[in-house]
């Protein structure tokens, strides 16, 4: 996966690479794999009682099928919300990245900075600001009201009972918002690498700039889109903050369920089982993805 072939003059390491890897790998072994083993143990265990935290490892695989049956809806909902949010991020982020890369000129860095600046404020503070914006007395519904759009918005399902806060629209809006930079930056990076003289050459070839774009530029920028998709979709599908602050009781995601199973129900077995199902789905998706496109694109 490392795309080893791409590296020029890689050395053949003897002990050096292992020495360099050891602190990082030790850290991961201790604080990622060991905790995961404990979690896996819970996923196959039965509680002795509710609160003592004592679990007996009984290799109970039913934990998995039970939670899958019970929370199938929330799984689907999570992937639906994060899928829509990812698509929206592409729809909003690609044109923005393209504009900055091609028309930004010497303001490129400034414009890129503008994409990142909002994220210097805390995630929670931003999300609370969104509750103000989409609240019943907030400016968005105020404008919609002034334009007499309430009825229309309700009928197409954007608002529910005339409200925006605590609806799925608000959750998807929040997810899109919070992960948009993770889409814009990788797309920008891959667009920046493209030699735009290609576009001129392609225009001669295809005669229309639209066709030239779709035939030449877009395919070359796909690695950025794929990287952005991973960086958006993975955290979005496990997120619970947006659903908690912006969603209602009918919009809870699988992250909220895990949170609830761990910290309200104290059903560590179920919570761990859900966690592993979620991780399994995501990891398989990523591996398939990486097989095709390479994991190096996973970073900005």
């Amino acid at each position: 996966m490392a795309g080893g072939g791409e590296e020029r003059n890689q050395r053949r390491g003897t002990w050096q690479p292992y020495a360099m890897l050891s602190p990082g790998m030790l850290w991961m072994a201790l604080f990622f794999f060991a905790p995961m083993v404990i979690l896996a143990r819970y996923a196959l265990s039965e509680p002795r009682d509710r609160f003592s935290g004592k679990y007996d490892l009984t290799w109970r695989f039913e934990n998995f099928t039970e939670v899958f049956d019970r929370y199938g809806e929330q799984f689907l909902r999570s992937f639906r919300y994060s899928g829509i949010a990812t698509l929206l991020c592409i729809a909003l982020g690609y044109p923005l990245a393209y504009w900055i890369a091609t028309r930004g000129g010497r303001y490129r860095n400034l414009l890129l900075g503008l994409v990142v600046v909002p994220f210097f404020t805390s995630y929670l503070v931003r999300t609370i600001a969104w509750t103000t914006l989409v609240g019943d007395e907030g400016p968005i519904l105020g404008i919609a009201g002034a334009l007499s759009l309430e009825g229309a918005l309700d009928s197409i399902g954007i608002t529910t009972n005339g409200g925006l806060l605590q609806t799925q629209t608000a959750v998807i809006l929040g997810l899109t918002y919070n992960f948009l930079p993770f889409m814009v930056l990788p797309i920008y990076v891959s667009l920046e690498k493209i030699d735009f003289r290609l576009l001129d050459a392609a225009k001669d070839l295809y005669s229309s700039s639209r066709r030239a774009f779709w035939k030449v530029i877009f395919p070359l920028s796909l690695p950025g889109v794929f990287a952005g998709t991973l960086l958006t979709f993975i955290p979005a599908s496990g997120d619970f903050v947006n659903a908690e602050f912006l969603g209602g009781p009918n919009n809870q995601m699988i992250g909220n369920v895990i949170q609830n199973e761990f910290f309200v129900q104290f059903d560590f077995a179920s919570a761990a089982a859900i966690s592993f199902i979620l991780m399994f789905i995501i990891t398989v998706g990523v591996l398939v993805y990486a097989r095709i496109f390479g994991t190096d694109e996973l970073s900005v």
């Binding site: 990622f32 905790p35 979690l39 955290p235 496990g238 895990i258 560590f268 991780m279 996973l298």
Partner: peptide, 20 residues
């Protein structure tokens, strides 16, 4: 290995660390 923590939802990572 490096990809795994990135594909682990934060709530799962947090819970596993707590239990650890």
């Amino acid at each position: 290995f490096l990809v795994l923590p990135l594909t682990t939802p934060e709530v799962v990572l947090g819970a596993s660390l707590l239990n650890f």
